[in-house]
């Protein structure tokens, strides 16, 4: 992805009403597909156990990216790097806190098993 406009995106994406509407519509369709896939996976029992959890986690991650890109208009262009840095830093904090908490509490849970 280069610094001016993301590859494959028209330069007018944020400059015309049509372009911006298209961005929201693309976001909606992608979000519906990803949500549908996640629920279908569970309803149809296509996968079980760890594989199901991994695929569901991946689908959620992609959907978060779609929402950030199409609804919150976060992209990789240079003119607004601050927003991106803030998101990445928050993501790091989130990762440390959530994985650390789960790790420590699960470990303690195992040790306290009779």
């Amino acid at each position: 992805m280069n610094d001016e406009t993301p590859a494959g995106m028209p330069a007018s994406e944020y400059g015309s009403e049509f372009g911006e509407r298209l961005s929201y519509l693309i976001g909606l369709v992608l979000a519906l597909v990803l949500t549908g896939a996640a629920f279908t996976l569970v309803w149809m029992k296509l996968l079980t156990g760890g594989a199901a959890l991994a695929v569901l986690g991946l689908l959620a991650f992609i959907q978060v990216l779609v929402h950030l890109r199409c609804f919150l208009h976060i992209d990789l262009a240079r003119s607004h790097r601050d927003d991106l840095k803030l998101i990445l830093f928050t993501a790091l904090i989130l990762l440390v806190m959530v994985s650390g908490t789960i790790w420590i509490l699960y470990d303690q849970h195992l040790r306290m098993m009779p």
């Binding site: 919150l72 208009h73 976060i74 003119s79 607004h80 927003d83």
Partner: peptide, 12 residues
Amino acid sequence: SERLHPGVNLGA
């Protein structure tokens, strides 16, 4: 025309 912040930018 530059985007300054997250979300819809008013721009021009």
